[in-house]
Design a protein around this nucleic acid. Structure first.
Length: 566
RNA sequence: UGCCCGGUGGUGUAACGGUAGCACGAGUGACUCUGGAUCACUUAGUCUAGGUUCGAAUCCUAGCCGGGCAACCA
């Protein structure tokens, strides 16, 4: 057992009760049932962790089943991508990989059974008529004029639908329930529609396809699922699933609904995610700004961080909006323990150590990960000309800034104390282009024998030895905290964050990064956690910023601004 | 307007008729060769009104607020 949930949620409590009462003979069998029409996102991860987690905790099993009942949208590519993402997250469905489309024949027989029982009929109204006659939220619907066709006629029509004798939309098979029901879902729901479309797995075998509602519950029944866990929006449909199962007289799983995941500053709907990709608003499904599993993976998220996040958010029926800061916290927590530290400069400022011998190079020892002694050490080259972070120097420092400033001494991490002696500016623009400094040879390694202290330690990269990298900085995809608050009549695209990605070129990074492999995680000291992007080449590594380090200085700056200070 | 579901600090979540707790965030301090990490402390909550009860976040009723449902999508 791993990723133990923080506490026992209402679903696990109910499973515990069923176990106690022996309701399912002591079995626990769940399933994760995606439709292969898109890529998985962090919201799916919640469901995956729940379904696989519950099975594992109770010594049960979890199936992977593709609910592929709409051939117009589904494809094999999505199936493969989904499997890859689930495996990456760390879950295994063994040989229990199922497809609703493999149940089509059984589903057809069940439909025939309902027709014979007078519980289903072929309706020949147009799409528009069906819609009209469904009634409204307050008024009952009208019964179809075809509702009382004989069993024989229905059987004949349905068989001919299957044979392909009718064009799309000519007929549908409907359950005969109650056109006046207060549950709209029970107003003679459609069971089958005609679609002369090739199915990615079944080929041209079928031209009628069952609706999700007529397939889902029975699929769970076939697989003898005990607890069908799904999201809240299917709560309305449960009476219908129950109706089918009961009319058919087959094994009846227990459906339990939970709230789907909503995250601040992003969107989770398949429709919007697809639009982002199709309209080129992002680079693709794996764009590091996307909440998709492949986007998060490329961004630098680890399966462990995501699973831990899913364990922490819990499972409830409350339609919550989870702060993305919690996700970020989970990543930092994971990477802090594991990511090797390196020095990289995002906005370089040239520093010349005037009293350091020209041409001399020293290899200084640096700790790879202070949180993990077994990570060992490495050598970092030091020489006369270095780059430091522009932000680490201020010509007129405010009181709480204690990095480099004219006349001030700081420590170069793992190297020497240096003092800024002069500031070189561009004659025209006045921009600081170079710092002249002196170093104290006695402080080699970073400690002063005389016990002298410095207030700050800054990172650096030797100019002559630096590797030039591309660094991609990411921020929230949207500017609005709750994208669900965007009014219907307004274009949600207006809330995209124009600064969600910033690309930095020619960033000096330490030479050890030459060996960096795509997917590897690093902490750029004092900056954040980064992940090597697949776009990297032998000459130019590319790094994605997964998440920043906590930045106390940034907070102080914000406070000073807010209080009108310097 | 009908039906279904839900409301606990800023956010997420516990407490199952008996001391409202945990985490994230925010704030303060300690420590520090990462203004990182770590540690300590602080902040702040039961939607409202009735009722049942010795006792209610929990049970009941009403109201208020939020979400879902009228695809031949899932």
């Amino acid at each position: 057992m791993r990723d133990k949930p923080a506490s026992t949620d209402f679903i696990r409590q109910r499973i515990l009760e069923d176990l106690k009462s022996g309701r399912f003979g002591g079995r626990v069998h769940t399933r994760f049932p995606p439709e292969p029409n898109g890529y998985l996102h962090i919201g799916h991860a919640k469901s995956i962790c729940l379904n696989f987690g519950v099975a594992e905790e109770f010594g049960g099993l979890c199936n992977l089943r593709f609910d592929d009942t709409d051939p117009t949208k589904e494809s094999r590519e999505f199936v493969e991508a989904i499997k890859e993402d689930i495996r990456w997250l760390g879950f295994d469905w063994g040989d229990r990989e199922y497809y609703a489309s493999d149940y089509f024949e059984q589903l057809y027989e069940w439909a025939v059974q309902l027709i014979k029982a007078g519980k289903a009929y072929v309706d020949s109204q147009s799409l528009e008529e069906i819609r009209q006659n469904r009634g409204t939220i307050t008024e009952p619907g009208k019964e179809s004029p075809y509702r009382n066709r004989s069993v024989e006629e229905n059987l004949d029509l349905f068989e001919r639908m299957r044979k392909g004798e009718f064009p799309d939309g000519a007929h549908v098979l409907r359950a005969k329930i109650d056109m006046a029901s207060k549950h709209l879902i029970l107003r003679d729901p459609i069971m089958y529609r005609i679609r002369h479309v090739r199915h990615y797995r079944q080929g041209d075998k079928w031209c009628i396809y069952p609706m999700y509602d007529f397939a889902h519950g029975q699929s769970d029944s076939i697989e003898r699922i005990t607890h069908s866990l799904c999201t809240l929006e299917f709560e309305n449909n449960r009476p219908l699933y129950d109706w089918y199962l009961d009319q058919l007289g087959i094994y009846h799983p227990q459906q339990i609904e939970f709230a789907r995941l909503n995250l601040t500053y992003t969107v989770m709907s398949k429709r919007r995610l697809a639009a982002l990709v199709e309209e080129g608003l992002v680079d693709g499904w794996d764009d590091p700004r996307m909440p998709t599993l492949r986007g998060l993976r490329r961004r630098g998220y680890t399966p462990e961080a995501i699973r831990n996040f899913c364990a922490r958010i819990g499972v409830t029926k409350y339609d919550a909006l989870t702060d993305i800061a919690l996700l970020e916290h989970c990543l930092r927590e994971d990477l802090n323990k594991r990511a090797p530290r390196v020095m990289a400069v995002l906005h370089p400022l040239r520093v010349v150590i005037e009293n350091y011998p020209e041409g001399q190079v020293e290899e200084l020892e640096a700790i790879n990960n202070p949180e993990d002694p077994s990570a060992g050490t490495r050598k970092v080259p030091f020489s006369r000309v270095l780059y430091i972070e522009r932000e680490d120097f201020m010509e007129e420092p405010p009181k709480k800034f204690y990095r480099l400033a004219p006349g001030r001494e700081v420590r170069l991490r793992y190297a020497y104390f240096i003092r800024c002696t002069d500031v070189v500016k561009d004659a025209r623009t006045g921009e600081v282009v170079e710092l002249r400094c002196t170093y104290d040879p006695a402080t080699r390694g970073g400690d002063a024998p005389d016990g002298r202290k410095v207030k700050a330690t800054i990172h650096w990269v030797s100019a002559a030895h630096a590797l030039s990298a591309e660094v991609r900085l990411y921020d929230h995809l949207f500017t609005i905290r709750d994208t669900g608050d965007i009014p219907e009549d307004e274009d949600w695209r207006n809330y995209l964050n124009p600064n969600s990605r910033q690309i930095l070129k020619n960033c000096p990074v330490e030479p050890s990064l030459r060996a960096a492999k795509p997917g590897a995680h690093y902490q750029f000291e004092r900056i954040g956690y980064f992940c090597v992007d697949p776009d990297s080449t032998a000459e130019t590594p590319v790094f994605n910023r997964a998440v920043t380090l906590r930045d106390t200085w940034a907070k102080i700056q914000k406070q000073m601004q807010a209080s009108g200070g310097a």
